[in-house]
Amino acid sequence: MAAAKQTEKEPVNFVHQNDILCETIKKEHRTQRIFTNYGINPFKKMYVLAGKPNSTHDTAEGEEDAHFLKVIKRANQEPVKKYTFPQTEAQEYGWISRPLVEHDTADKRLCFRRENSSITKYMDAAWRIKEQQENLN
């Protein structure tokens, strides 16, 4: 019975399809910007090879690109020196590395020295004896 009910499709209206296409292109052109400022990729490892020994154009001396050196130097820095705030959630951990409270060894609340009791002194002596016996054998 379902096959008996056949709905007819409306024919494609090419004028409306063309209007939709033109509107889409206009929207794309409004938001598109042509990028013409090309540069090097600082994250790609570059290996500088020496030129051919008999070639005159490969032996130019003293030509350094200051911008290139600056970009490479910045790419090799730590993220804390490159950016003012973390770029990802994972960078938030450890971003502020300076201590919140200055370390004062005289303050007993923050400085816990290692203290030896009679038991720890006994075990230190036992371990030293055991090491000496192992070294003799």
Rank of each mutant, 00 (worst) to 15 (best):
G51N: 10
K52A: 13
E64W: 02
N54K: 07
G39Q: 09
P86F: 04
Q91R: 02
G94T: 00
F35K: 08
A50Q: 12
Q87D: 04
H29D: 03
K81Y: 10
K44V: 14
V80M: 07
I25Q: 04
R30T: 02
T88N: 07
K81V: 13
T24Q: 04
F68Q: 05
K70R: 13
P86Y: 06
L49Q: 07
T31R: 03
R30C: 01
H67I: 00
C22Q: 10
I20W: 11
E23Y: 02
A90Q: 08
M46A: 11
K27R: 12
G62I: 02
T31W: 03
Q91T: 04
E64V: 14
Q91E: 15
H57R: 08
I40E: 01
T59R: 11
F43D: 04
L69M: 14
D58V: 04
F35M: 06
D19G: 01
Y83K: 06
P42W: 08
A90R: 13
E64P: 00
E89D: 15
E63V: 15
F68G: 01
P53Y: 03
T24S: 09
N37Y: 12
T31I: 06
T56Q: 12
T56W: 06
H16W: 09
R30L: 04
G62E: 03
V15M: 05
L69Q: 12
I20G: 04
K70F: 02
F68Y: 15
Q77F: 01
E61K: 15
G62W: 03
Y47A: 07
V48P: 00
T31A: 08
G94S: 03
P53W: 00
C22A: 11
N76E: 09
A66G: 09
P86G: 10
E63N: 14
Y47S: 10
F35L: 09
P42I: 12
V80I: 14
F14G: 06
